[in-house]
Computed example of a mutant assay.
Amino acid sequence: LFLRRKLSNLQWIAIVLLAVGTTTSQVKGCGEASCDSMFSAPIQGYMLGILSACMSALAGVYTEFLMKKNNDSLFGVIFNIARLLFDDFRGGFENGPWWQRLFNGYNLTTWLVVLNLGSTGLLVSWLMKYADNIVKVYSTSMAMLLTMVLSVYLFTFKPTLQ
Rank of each mutant, 00 (worst) to 15 (best):
L1I: 01
L1W: 05
F2Y: 09
L3V: 00
R4G: 08
R5L: 04
R5S: 03
Q11C: 08
W12E: 07
I15C: 15
V16F: 15
V16I: 15
V16K: 03
L17I: 15
L17M: 15
L18V: 09
A19C: 14
A19G: 11
T23M: 06
T24L: 14
T24H: 07
S25Y: 12
Q26N: 08
Q26F: 05
V27I: 15
K28D: 13
K28C: 03
K28E: 13
G29T: 08
C30P: 06
G31L: 09
G31Y: 04
C35Y: 00
D36A: 12
D36W: 01
S37V: 06
S37Y: 01
F39T: 03
P42M: 02
I43M: 14
I43Y: 15
Q44Y: 07
Q44F: 07
G45I: 00
M47H: 08
M47D: 06
M47Q: 13
G49F: 04
G49I: 02
A53Q: 10
A53E: 09
C54Y: 10
C54D: 01
C54T: 13
S56I: 03
L58W: 05
L58A: 11
G60D: 12
G60V: 06
G60A: 07
V61I: 15
Y62M: 12
Y62D: 04
F65V: 00
M67V: 07
K68C: 11
K68S: 11
N71H: 06
N71R: 11
N71F: 01
N71V: 00
S73W: 02
F75K: 13
G76V: 06
I81F: 11
A82H: 00
R83W: 11
L84R: 10
L84Q: 09
L85P: 00
L85G: 07
F86Y: 14
D88Y: 03
F89I: 10
R90Q: 12
G91I: 02
G92P: 04
E94V: 12
N95T: 05
P97G: 07
P97T: 05
W98G: 01
W99S: 02
W99H: 10
Q100G: 03
R101G: 14
R101Q: 09
L102M: 14
F103E: 02
F103C: 08
N104R: 08
G105L: 02
L108G: 03
W111S: 14
W111V: 13
W111Q: 06
V113T: 13
V113K: 15
V114S: 11
L115P: 01
S119W: 09
T120C: 06
T120L: 13
L123K: 01
V124K: 10
V124R: 09
W126K: 05
W126A: 13
W126P: 01
L127I: 15
M128N: 11
D132F: 08
V135C: 07
V137T: 15
V137D: 05
Y138I: 08
S139C: 15
T140A: 14
S141F: 13
A143L: 13
A143I: 04
A143F: 01
M144S: 03
V152L: 06
Y153I: 06
Y153R: 02
F155M: 06
T156K: 14
T156L: 05
F157N: 04
K158M: 05
Q162W: 11
